[in-house]
Amino acid sequence: MKEPAAGVRADPLRPEKARIIRIQPLPQGFKLFQVRFDDEQLNWEFDFKPGQFLMLSVIGVGEAPFAIASPPSRQGLLELCIHRAGRVTTALHRLKENAVIGIRGPYGNGYPIEAMQKSDVLLLAEGLYANALRPLLWYILDTRKDFGQVTLVMAVDSLPDLPLHDEFLSLLDREDITCRVCPSPAQAGAGAPSLIERVIAELRPQKVVGQNTYAVMAGEADHFPPLWDHLLQRGISKDKILFSLHRKMRCGIGKCGHCSIGYKHTCLDGPIFSYWDAQNLPEVI
């Protein structure tokens, strides 16, 4: 018979009871949910890194993974910026404030914030994906002295359609971050530059010290290659070019198999991967 490994086994699949505190409707089918655990202690014990995700259950409907949209530097409640897309998110969007939900986590690797300290950080986003940078962006701004130069470059087609655009616009007034928001393309119609091309164009005049810079990008992974090329030319190492991948997940703990990419699990080894990973793993793009 197989001997027990170590002590009591907690159930990693059991969600904790939580509640939606506030719902803020956003453009483009997004909503910002503020959630808290019913067990007050959990709200202060729930420790995570920017870039990590959690599993959220709509009771009686199902469970799905969602990136935590708030930074760990703002403890006490969690924010989730969720697009209405499938069965679980449609049910979630129907819930009212004070509705009971289930939450377990945090899961995944998150951004390597310890390693990133003292480095310059480039945050690059195409369109609606800008929200994926939110937890890291605010974590850096909340612990600003730990980081070097911080630059945010994002290309969007229509600024008012960007969820939380006012939050991004508020950054333009700050002196501790260089913020370039390019809301409309220089030329319209066929032959217009893609969002990623506009990010690159906007990035070109920026001063970047390659060896000491992390580049964090948010967008569709298959749009990344031209931007990768540009960042390599600026002297940034492949393992300092980071991005978050999304996959189907049923467990979040490396058992159900759905999120596999090559020999890695997005839930355990990701969701934050580097260009070096992408080069060595099949199926990233």
Partner: peptide, 28 residues
């Protein structure tokens, strides 16, 4: 198996799915 909520399927082609099976069992 790898289809997500917005309809995107990371392994739409059968060939990619059978390759995953072999890759996972024999390599990963």
């Amino acid at each position: 198996f790898a289809r997500v909520a917005d309809g995107r399927n990371f392994r739409q082609e059968r060939a990619t799915r059978i390759k995953l099976r072999y890759y996972h069992k024999q390599i990963a």
